[in-house]
Design a protein around this nucleic acid. Structure first.
Lengths: 339, 339
DNA sequence: AGTTGAAATGTAAGCGCTTGCATTTTCCAT
DNA sequence: ATGGAAAATGCAAGCGCTTACATTTCAACT
């Protein structure tokens, strides 16, 4: 019944204001290049018509989207939530919009998402970690898409990175565990294939074993996807051996939460019977009982700095500079001296 | 130094394959309208060139984006994570991409995001809850943008909704609390302004008070934003009164987690000294100790159904049909009979 | 009043794709 | 072989915007 007016266009506004489309465009994009009186007239035309610029058309004409894409391994748990939130907030301050997608920890999916985001005209990309097929880096370079890695710092990476030293951080934590007298250790690691953060964390733990002159066999390792249930399963597998570990280090807080939960279900007291540690210091770590001893990662700082660095790359076509952020151990109650 | 080839276009592919651009376009969009041999030739040209269609151009020409926008109040905690994940997965199955943004619980921001998403050509919109300024509904209608509400069911809403009955659910929970003998009750509610979920949950609790013939003053109410710290603060405020409540119902699990944590810090035993309940049944509810008694919301089901309903609306221009989903109380350890 | 350069505005050419319509090719029944 | 309908392909007009370049307007000087 009702007439369907199509969305108003620049032309409609121009006509209504009695100016050319170029002037309307300038009013929107470079207001100072238009005289006051005209600007006002255009402004009221815009309001009268309820005009909103068509994004796709603008992109086509201007070759800029003011959009930054980010591909994170998962949205499901809180690991990336705070850092990404900070990233988005900083972007917003500079007039950029964030497009997020998740790769579900699958390299193929990540590649597809990268292509999608590039096709959508992302001015820049935020990627997590350094491990990915070389041809992806080639693609990015060929297309001249500024990209930055976060959550993992590597001075000599293909892309600049803003992150921390996963290996060193886990090394420090493992040293602390060993220093507390633990000699039968286990690590519940994330899947290391295609995931340098997981791999480096595991390496860091191994470094510590070596550093303290312990038998490499003193560290049992289980690899499993980052999910609560998997942490729980891995934990019970580990603890139902004849001589179970006295400390279980987890590749991240989610896995640790699963372990902790399962420990309680098994009637094991943490930390009296077994110590558990995490990594990331997500909010959950503070909420669990006992509180989780873990590695604190400066998520918000990382997100904010990554945003600024990426914008710098996009706007000035600079190669971009990385930065190594500091982590520290947060001691709560889940780690204590070996029994 | 290196030559910067611009991204290959349809024209390049057409030239390389020796066909017209129309044929290349058809190869991509309607492969069955192109003969086998041609299709192969085009396909290899695409691969040889590393061609990716330009999204903005496609949108301009086709007036379709295969993009659905969603505006959620927050990404910061897990309240919307699972439902949204399911929503996205279902969308993906049907070839749609999800664009998410968060309004930070601010109506003005929500409106801005709606406009942005529409400008970006979203084929449809997912909104949370029914409370918003009428002119937003007018805008959506005028622009003919299919939109659906989730997380709150209302048969007579301006937009179809796929959600549950917040009021009834909280009523049921409150009845259970009262049935356990609690007579001094408190509710830590989310901010009700512009948030029908929060408002209806509070109403439900009040309904229960009335239903059991209790003095309305038997229910103390504190309104505070949905953040852990606020839940904690509200809780200590409530408990440091002369005759504190014996049961504190929280507007959601995040608030409840804060309350629980603070209770422990205050040396209060839950549920012996005070009972605490939540709402939503996010993962956290299961991880806390004691486990949180809460209202289970079928997040994944809701997300999946919302996606299907919205796609239906988009593709067939139907008005869309809502659905009321069922919730149920999950009993864990944080609620027990009054002391 | 007449110049003149700067500021404001207008003109129009694309940006890369889809799609209605026109044209050519294919293939079958005759 | 051949006519003709159906299938395949080509042609070209936009989609709504930005921006280089052309033109007009304006104000400040002679």
């Amino acid at each position: 019944m009702s007439k369907l007016k199509p969305a108003p266009t620049l032309d409609d506004v121009a006509k209504q204001a009695g100016v050319s489309t170029a002037t309307v465009s300038r009013c929107i994009n470079t207001p100072d290049r238009v005289v006051e009186a005209t600007r006002k007239r255009v402004q009221s035309a815009i309001e009268a018509l309820g005009y909103t610029p068509n994004f796709a058309a603008r992109v086509m004409a201007a070759k800029r989207t003011f959009t930054i894409g980010a591909i994170i391994p998962t949205m499901d748990n809180a690991i990336f939530a705070r850092g990404l939130q900070a990233f988005q907030e900083e972007l917003r301050k500079h007039g950029y919009t964030l497009l997020v997608s998740s790769s579900a920890y699958k390299p193929e999916t990540e590649e597809e998402q990268i292509r999608t985001l590039v096709a959508r005209g992302a001015d820049g990309l935020l990627l997590i970690g350094h491990d990915r097929a070389p041809h992806i880096y080639d693609f990015l370079e060929q297309r001249q898409i500024p990209a930055l890695v976060a959550w993992s710092f590597a001075a000599e990476g293909k892309l600049p990175s803003i992150g921390f030293d996963n290996r060193q951080a886990m090394f420090d934590l493992a040293c602390k565990v060993i220093g507390l007298g633990h000699r039968r250790l286990a690590m519940i690691s994330g899947i290391t294939r295609g995931n340098d953060r997981a791999r480096l964390r595991l390496e860091g733990a191994r470094d510590a074993i070596r550093h303290h002159g312990l038998d490499p066999a003193a560290l049992q390792v289980v690899e499993t996807p980052y999910e609560i249930e998997n942490g729980a399963e891995a934990f019970s597998g580990l603890m139902s051996q004849d001589t179970p570990p006295t400390a279980v280090m987890c590749g991240n807080d989610v896995l640790a939460a699963g372990a902790l939960l399962r420990a309680q279900d098994m009637g094991l007291k943490v930390p009296q019977d077994v110590s558990i540690t995490g990594f990331d210091d997500i909010e959950l770590a503070r909420l669990l009982r006992p509180g989780l001893t873990t590695v604190h990662v400066p998520h918000r700082e990382m997100g904010g700095k990554a945003a600024r660095a990426l914008i710098e790359m996009v706007e000035h076509s600079t190669p971009g500079t990385g930065e190594r952020l500091h982590t520290h151990i947060v001691e709560r109650q889940s780690l204590s001296p070996a029994p």
